[in-house]
Simulated scan of single mutants.
Amino acid sequence: MDVKVFLATCASLPAGDGDDRALADALNDVGIDARWAVWGSDEAADLVVLRSTWDYTDRLGEFLDWCSSVPALANPADVVRWNTDKSYLVELAQVGVPVVPTTLATPGFTDWPDGDFVVKPTVGAGSRGALRVAAGDVDVAAHHLESLGGPALVQPYQSTVDRVGETALVFLGGQYSHAFTKAAMLTPDAAYDESGLYIVERLAGASPTGPQRRTAEDVLDAAAGLLGLRRTDFLYARVDLLAAADGSPLLLELELVEPALGFRQTDAAAPMRFASAVRNALRA
């Protein structure tokens, strides 16, 4: 199999963020010439796989145009365009997915939740621009919404995250691969990575519950349905779940563009599962 695959990243992280360190070797082991490349290049490859392209939020139009110009992109450009705008959560809720209650807001918004809540941009990565607001602190919320300069999501803060964190379920080629947990991130001690692109996460491996697995499977099926695709068309997907007050899973985000996939928090065979999914995508 004589093919070339680029793992797309950004200039600040020319070899990825470290989590994907094993991917190039895993791909090479199955006959794929894989290397890192900063997004924006017009150099040809059989497949470009979006990975740590985390500066795209500052150059969204340019990024989406570039994605549309790439002959073979994973995930596909139409998926990227849909998933880079977090208003997709409203669409998923409308088709019955249990989503953290989400309202779209623009400057002048006044219908703030009663308890603690979160205001975050509809386009964002690495938790940049996300603010946890104390109950009743609407002046702070309104000022932050104004400062974002565009539409934002307003969501009641799910306090269970302070105890149990988020659970991220990873799918490769539409099939469940592994899971990991992320501790609460919107805390007073949150700190950014030296690149300034994302808040440093506290991660650990996880074994998801049956309800979490079912919810994540339903999320993927619903997203594929909205996009007119099969779930196997997603080379990778990460489903981030929180627990509601009653313990039931709620979708926080569905990551289909450039998610960290938690390879350092799972078994050593996971990069090989990724490589197999890439080989399958190349034959599609």
Rank of each mutant, 00 (worst) to 15 (best):
D46E: 11
D46M: 09
L47P: 11
L47F: 12
V48R: 02
V49F: 05
L50R: 03
L50T: 12
R51N: 09
R51C: 04
R51K: 14
S52R: 07
S52K: 13
S52I: 03
Y56N: 10
Y56W: 08
Y56Q: 07
Y56V: 11
T57E: 14
D58L: 02
R59M: 12
E62C: 05
F63G: 07
F63A: 13
F63S: 09
D65T: 14
D65C: 03
W66T: 03
W66S: 04
C67W: 11
C67T: 12
V70C: 15
A74S: 15
N75C: 06
P76H: 08
A77C: 01
D78T: 06
D78C: 03
V80H: 07
V80F: 06
R81S: 06
W82Q: 08
N83Y: 05
N83E: 08
T84L: 12
T84D: 05
D85V: 12
Y88H: 13
Y88P: 09
Y88E: 13
L89T: 09
L89W: 01
E91D: 15
L92S: 03
V97W: 00
V100D: 08
V100N: 11
V100I: 12
V100F: 08
A105C: 11
T106I: 10
P107S: 05
P107C: 09
G108Q: 11
G108L: 07
G108Y: 05
G108A: 04
F109H: 15
F109M: 05
T110A: 14
T110R: 15
D111Y: 00
D111P: 03
W112M: 06
P113S: 13
P113Y: 09
D114A: 15
D116T: 08
F117N: 01
V118F: 02
K120I: 02
K120C: 09
T122A: 14
V123A: 13
G124D: 10
A125V: 13
A125Y: 01
S127D: 03
R132Q: 05
R132P: 01
V133Q: 01
V133L: 03
A134D: 12
A134K: 13
A135T: 10
G136W: 04
V138Q: 03
D139Q: 08
A141T: 00
A142Q: 09
L145E: 01
S147W: 04
L148F: 02
L148W: 01
G149D: 06
G149T: 10
G150Y: 13
P151E: 15
P151I: 01
V154N: 06
V154T: 09
Q155K: 06
P156Y: 13
Y157K: 07
Q158Y: 10
S159T: 15
S159V: 14
T160C: 05
V161G: 04
V164P: 00
G165R: 02
L172Y: 10
L172K: 04
L172T: 01
G173T: 00
Q175Y: 02
Q175P: 00
S177A: 10
S177I: 08
S177H: 08
S177Y: 12
S177N: 08
H178T: 03
H178C: 01
